[in-house]
Design a binder for these strands. Structure first.
Length: 954
RNA sequence: GGGAGCAUAGCUCAGCUGGUUUAGAGCAUCUGCCUUACAAGCAGAGGGUCCGCGGUUCGAACCCGUGUGCUCCCACCA
């Protein structure tokens, strides 16, 4: 590559390798420099450049972190599902993390960002099952080992996809640390924690009503159930009295399919309508079971008919009622939500009941309603809007089902470590935005037991071992279990017909029971406690995640952190909002409104996508995704690219000459007409103008640098990006570059050129965490470098000089004001004008007049003390401007403008005077406020005087 | 049903402890420009009952009350 004889242009474009070698091969570098200058493309072309820099960063190990003496800045990536594909949510989330981690790296901290994936038991198992089904294999035909072999095969094949996609976005993750929640050590840690909590009496096994997902045939935690509004029907079903007396009792139910499991009718004992019926018996339709009418205050008098059917096997509240009143629970639905007759066998069910066996619950609902109608026991149906729980993963309607599961006693667990409850409320862990604290506190206060067992194979298998009779012990492995068994039951476990005595629980643990250890175990904090890494990186610095997993994950990591490491897991939590489409709808597969992220990166470039997603996404707010934001990002790339082209054009044209004459820089100016009398001669020093421009921009840069730092410290990322965007586009490109730009094909002073390159470099530094690729590229094209922007340490910021900033603002407002006058008077851009200024502060103008002249295309500026007849008159600030033009004068229009301004000031003055005339204000307001109001008054009066004078002169 | 939050330009949002020139930005819109880095651009402009009402205050977009409209969280009135 470094063979200088082969300067084939395409091949000579800088690559990481040749850039590094430039300083060694000077001649080659010189040749290449000229090639670069010639070859900058019209627009920024991200694709190749992104690939080039990502591999360069990787080759140099910039993302790699090992403990050292520096301060650590640690982020653990919320592990996406191992089978997941990158979507807009990941894009937002990981862009934010990358911004934080890149900034930390450039602040000289030891930045460590850990990637990884989550085994996601339900989601992954569902995918593997679907894949097997396509191959004609059913899960039930496989042994656990066979199934897991298929699952691992799937994981190895598709597991890394999402991580590869993150590289395209420029994410600076330490890939050597890539973790997985089922890595051997991780797996072991999860088991160890389970055993510990069991021994502490926090984990227990029990028969409880659980949320059952009939699609994946597993129990779920409360957090995994999502309630959705549905249109359903209320069926009014009459249960005749068992004693044969006339009539019966009518209940309203949304679930007639559970009628065959009814064991009682319940009414409110305060309800006079039913008071006399309590204790009587009624007959369950179709199955003809006699059930009692009971009384309980749980029943709402004015809902439905005021009578409730009690089905303890299929409803949480009914189950409570059942326990209270000693009722049997008769299950009529199996694990798949199909009708089962097992519990009804004693009742010698009819053929009709047998006919329901195997029928799906929703089919059965209609069928039973029809059958009840056929015997005239269905009074009516009415439409009803209700809510129904669905599985977060499969979307299936959840059944409440009585089931033997493993639970964690959360109240007891939290009580065991008082720090857990205080961490967030006392701001030891800060939430951004702060309002998430409320949600968190509310959940913690109302916490319920956590169902941690899942009827799945893909996950950490529950370390409980059972003998033939269902006696069990909990231990980390089988050998320990056998010992434990002997200890507990005083004998070796009896063999099962020649087979081994103890069998392990078939179920596995909730995925979140492993993810809650993530910030610790990615550094082996559980499996190898107190190792160098965990001691250095933990607690991690910032967690970036979605609000939707605040309970699933954030809260549980806090608990785990304090419980197992006696330390908080992270110091700040940045909650991202949800990415929605332009109409504010959630992105979903069904709606098809989820853009193809990789396609967008291909089309706009990763930097543009990062810009687009960050430009309007305050912490915690949902963001409305619009492709136009990406366009804005792409345009921003091009803007910087074009500024680079301009600066590169100057590179070969620098001069060490002293102050240049006006003529040499403004060749078209007629030097003889430079001044037209007045107080000061104009256009004396272009150098003065450039000095001003440099001085101003230096201070402006310092100002913004401080602002950005402040914003980033407060996690106001999108605001920081906006400020940088405006600094580059407006202040640097639109103002500064125009101010120092030499005339066409004119040389530029070396000092000015070098300053400009320095500014551009600083700007790239400031922007780099947000848009890493384009900034790295420009950084290297601007100058020969021995380092890379990616790992460049920021310079300390300085304080900006207020005075020079004010002068810059004044200059800008004069330029804009005079350009407006030009526009309003229909002057052609090429038409040169002569300007006379009546000002009290000629000195200030000295340093800026050459810039002013160039920017408003004035061939001459002079200073006067009297009005000049036959000119366009305008007032900007406190100065009067008289503009000579060949255009016909629009006196009426000028008058109107001045009068409008005067009127505005008049209104303003009135409010100020009103304030100052108010005795109470003068007495109560702070002195500085009072002084300010007085200054406002004086300023307004002065300005009005100037306007009035100008009006008279017209 | 309980709780939290939000309402500022056509859109997306800033606006910190009430006073900083009778409200700011970006996008979009309009007008004029193929000016020599950039038409994916340049220059300029217009655009607001700070959701309604009431109160506190010398002074309110900001504090309090109330109404309206959205959003989110929690809770299985079957």
């Amino acid at each position: 590559m470094c063979d200088a004889t082969e300067v084939d242009i395409a091949a000579s474009l800088p690559t990481p390798n040749n850039i590094k070698k430039r300083s060694v091969f000077c001649t080659f570098a010189a040749i290449q420099k000229s090639v670069i200058r010639m070859e900058l493309t019209k627009n920024f072309e991200p694709q190749e450049i992104e690939k080039k820099w990502y591999s360069h960063w990787m080759d140099n190990g910039y993302f790699k972190s090992v403990p050292d003496t520096r301060e650590a800045y640690t982020i653990v990536m919320p592990p996406p599902n191992v089978t997941g594909v990158l979507h807009m949510g990941h894009c937002l989330n990981n862009t934010i993390q990358d911004i934080l981690i890149r900034r930390a790296r450039m602040q000289g901290k030891n930045a460590c960002w850990v990637p990884g994936t989550d085994h996601a038991s339900i989601a992954t198992e569902a995918k593997v099952v679907a894949m097997l089904r396509e191959r004609g294999i059913t899960k039930s035909s496989l042994s656990r080992e066979e199934f897991l072999a298929y699952a691992w095969e799937w994981k190895e094949k598709y597991g890394g996809i999402i991580l590869e996609q993150l590289k395209k976005m420029g994410c600076s993750l330490d890939w050597d640390r890539t973790a997985f929640t089922m890595d051997p050590d991780y797996y072991k840690s999860v088991i160890e924690i389970f055993v510990k909590l069991y021994n502490d009496g926090i984990i227990y096994r029990g028969l409880r009503m659980v949320n059952w997902d009939p699609a994946s045939k597993t129990a779920l935690s409360d957090e995994e159930v999502i309630f959705k509004d549905v249109d359903s029907k209320l069926y009014y079903v009459t249960y005749p009295f068992a004693d044969g007396s006339e009539g019966g009792i009518t209940v309203a139910t949304t679930r007639p399919e559970t009628i065959l499991g009814d064991v009682a009718i319940c009414v409110n004992p305060t309800d006079e309508r039913f008071l006399s019926l309590i204790g009587k018996e009624v007959i369950v339709p179709i199955i003809n079971r006699k059930i009692p009418i009971i009384g309980d205050e749980y029943v709402t008098v004015d809902f439905g008919t005021g009578a409730l059917k009690v089905t303890p096997a299929h409803d949480k509240n009914d189950n409570e009622l059942g326990k209270k009143h000693n009722l049997k629970a008769l299950s009529t639905l199996d694990a798949e939500g199909k009708f089962t007759i097992v519990d009804l066998m004693e009742e010698d069910p009819s053929e009709q009941v047998y006919g329901y066996v195997g029928m799906d619950r929703f089919v059965l609902r209609k069928k039973i309603a029809e059958d009840i109608a056929a015997i005239n026991q269905l009074q009516k149906t009415e439409d009803y809007k209700g809510q129904v729980g669905t599985s977060e993963r499969t979307g299936a309607v959840i059944e409440s089902r009585l089931s033997l599961q493993w639970f964690m006693d959360m109240k007891k667990f939290i009580a065991s470590n008082p720090d857990i409850a205080k961490a967030v409320s006392e701001d030891k862990i800060k939430f951004h935005p702060n309002k998430a604290k409320n949600t968190y506190a509310h959940w913690m206060d109302n916490i319920k037991d956590w169902c941690i067992s899942r009827q799945l194979w893909w996950g950490q298998q529950i370390p409980a071992w059972y003998d033939e009779d269902g006696n069990f012990v909990v231990a980390e492995n089988k050998a320990d279990a056998e010992k434990e068994y002997i200890k507990k039951y005083g004998a070796v476990p009896p063999l099962r017909g020649g087979q081994e005595g103890l069998l392990q629980d078939e179920d596995c643990l909730d995925t979140w029971f492993s993810s809650w250890l993530w910030p610790m175990e990615v550094f082996k904090g559980i499996s190898k406690p107190n190792n160098e890494e965990i001691n250095y990186y933990y607690p991690t610095t910032t967690l970036v995640t979605g609000q939707d997993i605040i309970f699933f994950w954030v809260a549980r990591m806090v608990m785990a952190g304090y419980a197992f490491k006696q330390q908080l897991p992270f110091k700040d939590v940045y909650f991202t909002g949800m990415v929605r489409d332009k109409q504010g709808r959630k992105m979903s597969k069904q709606l098809g409104n989820s853009p193809d992220l990789l396609g967008l990166i291909d089309h706009y470039g990763a930097d543009a996508v990062r810009f687009g997603i960050m430009i309007a996404s305050p912490a915690g707010n949902d963001i409305l995704f619009e492709e136009s934001a990406l366009e804005q990002g792409r345009n921003f790339n091009n803007k910087m690219w074009n500024a680079l082209k301009l600066v590169k054009m100057w590179e070969g044209r620098t001069t060490d000459d002293g102050p240049q004459t006006t003529e040499s820089r403004e060749p078209t100016t007629d030097s003889g007409r430079q001044t037209t009398g007045g107080v000061q001669s104009g256009l004396s020093s272009v150098v003065g103008g450039q000095t001003f421009a440099i001085n101003w921009f230096e201070n402006r840069l310092a100002e913004v640098r401080n602002e950005v730092n402040e914003m980033l410290n407060q996690f106001k990322l999108s605001e920081a990006l906006k400020v940088i965007y405006s600094l580059i586009w407006d202040d640097f490109c639109s103002w500064y570059l125009e101010w120092v730009k030499p005339g066409f094909e004119q040389p530029i002073e070396k000092a000015v050129y070098e300053k400009t390159v320095g500014f551009f470099t600083s700007l790239m530094e400031l922007l780099h965490p947000f848009m890493p690729f384009v900034t790295e590229e420009i950084y290297h094209l601007l100058d020969e470098r021995n380092d890379d922007l990616c790992v460049k340490i920021n310079v300390d910021s300085t304080t900006a000089n207020e005075q020079i900033l004010k002068e810059g603002t004044l200059l800008k407002s004069m330029i804009s004001g005079l350009r407006d006058v030009r526009n309003k008077n229909q002057m052609k851009p090429k038409e040169k004008i002569t300007v006379h200024i009546d000002t009290a502060e000629v000195n200030i103008y000295k340093s800026i007049e050459s810039i002013l002249a160039k920017q408003i295309n004035s061939e001459s500026i002079s200073f006067v003390t009297d009005a000049i007849a036959g000119t366009i008159t305008t007032v900007i600030g406190k100065d009067k401007f008289y503009i000579e033009t060949e255009q016909p004068l629009n006196v009426a229009g000028q008058k109107e403008d001045l009068e409008k301004e005067l009127q505005h000031l008049n209104g303003f003055l009135t409010t100020v005077e009103k304030k100052l005339g108010n005795e109470k204000f003068v007495a109560n307001a702070k002195p500085e406020v009072l002084a300010l109001e007085q200054k406002k008054k004086a300023d307004a009066e002065e300005k009005m005087k100037i306007l009035e004078e100008s009006l008279k002169g017209l």
